[in-house]
Each structure stands twice: as C-alpha cells, then as structure tokens.
Design a protein around this nucleic acid. Sequence first.
DNA 1: CACAGAAA
DNA 2: TTTCTGTGG
Length: 326
Amino acid sequence: MGNADLRQLAALEDVPLSSLGGSVVAVDAHNWLYRYLTTTVRFTRSRAYTTSDGEEVANLVGVVQGLPKFFEHDLTPVFVFDGGVTDLKEAEVDERREQRERYEELLAEARESGDAAEISTLESRTQRLTPLIQETTRDLLRHLDVPVVEAPAEGEAQAAYMARQGAVDYVGSEDYDTLLLGAPYTLRQLTSSGDPELMDFEATLAEHDLTWEQLVDVGILCGTDFNEGVPGIGPKTAVKLVREHGDLWGVLDARDAYVEHADLIRELFLDPTVTDDYDFETSLSPDVEAARAYVCEEWEVPNEEVERGFDRIEASAAQTGLDDWV
DNA sequence: CACAGAAA
DNA sequence: TTTCTGTGG
C-alpha cells in the first residue's frame, strides 16, 4: 500500500532542465527540506552543522546546495510552507510523534550499545522539521530573495492550487499526491542531479480514461497518506474497478469493503484548504553577502560547507542580472 | 520512496 | 501479471 502505486499510472516523461528556463516552480518546502535533511546530514558529519549551542542547522547547507540548480537554469522557485494541519492529518501527526518517541528511545539504546548500523537507521527516521529549521530556512530564503508562500494547511495542496490557477508553471515535489491534488504539471527529482521527471495530470487522466474524482478514488483504493488501501487492490485493479463501478462507493459496495473517512479524504484532495492570499515577485535580487554572513557567522556553519553553493548562486545571479521587465 | 524478490 | 513485503537510502 502506498502512494508510490500511483507511479504505475502516472504519465511521466524526462525533461531536460534547459527546456524549463524562465518558468516558476512552487516547491513543497517540507518535502524538499526533508530530502536534504535525510541525505546531506547522513553522509557527512553532523557536527559540521551543529552550532556551539547544539542547534542543528543542516537545512541551511541543504538550501545553499539546492538553490543553484534553480538559478543556473533560470527557474524561479517559490517555497510553499505548511500551515496548520487538518483534523485527519492531526491524528496522523500524533501517531508519528508517538512513533518518533519510540524511535528515539531505541536510538538511545543503540548508542549505548554502539550499534552503528542501527544508529544510522534510527537517525534517519527521527529526522524532523523543527521550528528552528523552518525559521532559519525562511530567513535564509529572505536574504536570497526567494519567494515564500504560507499555506493555510498543506503546502502541497497550496502549491497544486497555485499551479491550477496559473500562478506558477510547475509544482516541485517527489510525492505522487500532487496528481491527486490536480496539479497540472509536477517536476520530480529537482533535488537530485540529472534531468527532472515531468508528471502530467491531464495526460494521466486521458491515458486511463478517468475523471479527476475517479483518479482520487483510485488513489484511495490503493492507499494514501490518510488511509490504508483495500487489501488485494493495487493500481491496476483499482482503475479497472473504478471504471466498472463508476466511483469509490460503487467499488466498496461491490467488494463489501469499507474505508474510514472516505468522504473526508476525497475532499482533502479535491477541495483542500488553500488561499488566494499569496503574492510574489519572480525576478530575484539575492543578497548573497548577507546570506553568507547569516549562514557562516550567525549560525557558525563552516565556510567550506557552503562556499561552492554560494559561489554558484552569485555567478548565476550576476549572469541573469535583474529581469525587471518581467 | 525505489527496487527486488516472494507470494498469490 | 499484480500485489505484498522487506530493505536500504
């Protein structure tokens, strides 16, 4: 069960970064940061990202390493941060917090017994976006003049909404949920090297002859962040069944199955809490010196960790100059 | 989440 | 051929 089941249904295509020049990408900040926090930190010494006060600010390194990719290809990122959580999500957050506490207990035990493998697995699972991480990320983005949007609820939903409104050209996220949220075009693998993968919403619907609602129903049958899938139903049979019975209810009746909160989950994807209260400029004037000072002096990150990234940002900023005709 | 191998 | 389960990143 899982969202990755949607991969089998999604209309995907590799696109060269060079073809994306001039476009605007709404990046799901949580998703993007999480990726850096679980890779950047793990393969290096976390000491390098810890201040003398013991605060972990690996996110700053992640931001500095991740942004050049956008700037060098004339892509404008808009970072969308999560707001409050939905009731349904809240239950999940609680569960995750409890689970995290269990992991942290295990982690403490592993450290005592010196089990290195166990320690690293558990560390990856206890990564989380602390308030400090969110705040310092916002501060750094402000120095670099990167637009930030505050979502009322889920950042992904807000990003997808802005894409549907035409305020941005793409949503940037690794998750397949954006498909269920109706994001017209999602760019995946913006964090890794190499060309991104483009996920096309309309093409996906057309390929399987489904409506948006039906695609959401397929997702629910396979399982989403909010529900376990129905046993025995994967992406293939879900599509077949939804087409056969029309919608989720038809399928559930026919299989005598039940999904908790199915109607609410549907709404979360089809009509999520979003806002029109966003506003951003797409021509950026980063203050790289201020950003360097913020990261290296204020947060004591060793210069060599971010020097290369800042140099790249500076170089691409100088090249593009100020596109004040936009 | 991706990928691989087992199970159905 | 599709779904499930485990593992590693």
